[in-house]
């Protein structure tokens, strides 16, 4: 789809989306890390008497229905969201990259198997399947990770395979094979470093998708379990008092949007930098 002009164009300056994306993602990560050391109030501290307070000097974003400090919950929620998403993407990388590499190196039945598995998984709407799987495994952070991770395995396997196949056609790989290197060695030494860019880009975008889907699961009560704060759960709770304290529904939603926006921008920027041929997909 992309003309060669893109490849030839020298790219000296960093893409603007990369900078903005890195800044936003950095902000979320810093807030998440900060929450380990400090929050304005303990995030799980219940003070029923101070419930649904508007923003004040003591509670910058007000309090929820149990009088918990909304800002502290958003901060700890960032940590929990990132942790679940990172684990879901980690499963995808650990499972998908080797599968894709093997498929590209061996062709034949392993290749066919990976393609069929991906076809099969892609036939199921991801969120609906995640809902089904958490119903099967029981709600909770770990099961949400598994339910979201399954799809990442398929996506990353497909992306790795596609990128690896291209590498296999390159001259230096043929040269290495001619010099008597085995397929395993070629995969590790030559293919893996050359597919890393595509994998990193795709993983960043999957990270954003995982944050969105984790929020949806928690919103439905299937993800991270209380009292651990999560953005999706805060949104679900706030919906019941939408008319008395509407801002409590606005903050967590904005936090989700900001994190996803940052990661998507980062992914797009990284793509421009590392993967100009666009092997990766945003449509996860």
């Amino acid at each position: 789809m992309t003309s060669d002009a893109d490849l030839d164009a020298p790219r000296r300056r960093l893409p603007r989306s990369l900078l903005l994306g890195a800044a936003l993602t950095g902000l979320v990560v810093v807030v998440a890390l900060l929450s380990l050391l400090w929050t304005p109030h303990p995030a799980e501290q219940v003070r029923v008497i101070a419930r649904l307070r508007p923003p004040s000097a003591a509670n910058w974003l007000g309090t929820d229905h149990f009088g918990r400090d909304a800002l502290s919950m958003i901060m700890v929620g960032a940590r929990n969201s990132l942790a679940v998403a990172a684990a879901a993407v980690g499963i995808g990388i650990l499972g998908g990259v080797p599968l894709g590499l093997v498929a590209a190196a061996r062709r034949g039945w392993p290749d066919e198997g990976v393609a069929r598995m991906a076809d099969l998984l892609f036939a199921f709407p991801a969120l609906l399947t995640a809902i089904l799987l958490t119903a099967l495994l029981g709600p909770g952070a770990i099961n949400a990770v598994l339910a979201l991770g399954v799809f990442n395995v398929a996506v990353l396997a497909r992306v790795t395979r596609g990128a690896a196949l291209q590498v296999w056609r390159r001259e230096f790989v043929r040269a290495a094979l001619a010099l008597g290197r085995g397929p395993t060695a070629v995969t590790v030494v030559h293919v893996l470093p050359n597919v890393a860019g595509a994998v990193i880009v795709q993983a960043t975008i999957l990270f954003a998708v995982a944050i969105l889907n984790e929020a949806a699961l928690s919103y439905l009560g299937l993800g991270i379990q209380p009292p651990a704060p999560s953005w999706g759960k805060m949104l679900g709770d706030a919906q019941t008092y939408l008319f008395t304290a509407p801002m409590q529904a606005v903050y967590p939603g904005a936090a989700i949007a900001l994190a996803v926006l940052g990661l998507n921008l980062l992914g797009d920027g990284l793509r421009d930098l590392l993967d100009p041929r666009h092997k990766t997909t945003t449509l996860g």
Partner: peptide, 21 residues
């Protein structure tokens, strides 16, 4: 459930919540 978990925590009982259908 969430409130009781917080109350029991005061007395030293650590409660893990599991929401079920």
């Amino acid at each position: 459930g969430e409130l009781i978990a917080a109350m029991l925590a005061e007395a030293g009982v650590r409660v893990r919540i599991e929401n079920l259908e």
